[in-house]
């Protein structure tokens, strides 16, 4: 059993959903980013999605896009992601990396998998890599016992829901709305429908992302999903005044939310 399987089993025993928190590595700079990761873990994130800042993040809205630019301007280098992953693991969370594909391709797929596993990473979420193109990565993941996590979307056909979830390990990333990352006022009704359709084809835990920003929304999503993914709202908190304090308060609110469902 992988650490992700253990984690979701534990949450199930506690009768709650997991909180998955996203932050870009190196944002706003590497030392603050390491502090932020520890804060996130300490305040109740079960899984930490460590983002790789990238010049062309076409699945991301303005909040994450700007954070990526800031991190790159502060001198982020790809190997920093392993430092951040190790910090997340040492702080007691389960780290997974979220990255656009080109940085991994350039680094070398096998080498990236090896270094991610060595740093204590549990898996990789790939927003612009679908299983159809992921042969090399799936082989490397298997070799290193890492979880490949692919996305499903409201537009996915039932056949694709089946083939995509079959390629996933650890959990499935359920992108609840059509669109890019960003805070939304309402978590669309699409989310619950898509979770239902996905449940019909897989036993893997389903984590729902895109748009959650408050404890109430987290509680709502936790009512039908195994994990609640929060990204832009955390990035925005960290980027505001008293960033680390705001990050802690929001994470605590969200952690309470996933326990309230």
């Amino acid at each position: 059993m992988s650490v992700l399987d253990d984690l979701f089993a534990g949450c199930r025993e506690e009768g709650r959903s997991a909180l998955v928190g996203y932050l870009p590595a190196g944002y706003p700079d590497l030392p603050t980013s390491l502090e932020a990761i520890r804060t996130l873990a300490d305040a109740g994130a079960d899984i930490i999605e460590v983002g790789v800042p990238y010049t062309d993040p076409l699945m991301d809205g303005p909040v994450v896009e700007r954070a990526a630019s800031t991190a790159l301007r502060s001198g982020f280098r790809l190997t920093d992601v392993f430092t951040v992953v190790a910090a997340a693991r040492d702080a007691g969370a389960v780290p997974v990396v979220m990255t656009y594909w080109n940085p991994v391709l350039r680094y070398g797929v096998d080498r990236f998998a090896q270094d991610l596993a060595d740093a204590g990473g549990a898996g990789l979420i790939t927003p612009d890599l679908i299983p159809d193109e992921a042969g090399a990565w799936r082989a490397a993941a298997e070799e290193q016992d890492l979880a490949p996590v692919f996305l499903v979307a409201p537009s996915s056909t039932d056949a694709r829901l089946r083939s995509t979830t079959q390629a996933c390990r650890g959990f499935v990333y359920v992108a609840s709305t059509m669109g890019v990352t960003g805070v939304r006022d309402a978590v669309g009704s699409d989310a619950e429908r898509l979770v239902g359709r996905t449940r019909a084809v897989t036993d893997l835990p389903l984590c729902v992302g895109l748009g959650v920003s408050t404890g109430d929304q987290a509680a709502e999503v936790a009512g039908f999903a195994d994990g609640v993914i929060v990204g832009s709202a955390l990035v925005r908190a960290l980027g505001g005044p008293d960033g680390l304090g705001a990050l802690r308060r929001l994470t605590e609110e969200l952690a309470a939310g996933v326990r309230r469902a």
């Binding site: 076409l58 594909w101 927003p127 996305l151 979307a153 537009s155 996915s156 694709r160």
Partner: peptide, 12 residues
């Protein structure tokens, strides 16, 4: 070539 895109675009 290929298709290096978000899943949300595959149907389109």
């Amino acid at each position: 070539g290929g298709r290096y895109v978000p899943e949300a675009l595959v149907a389109a």
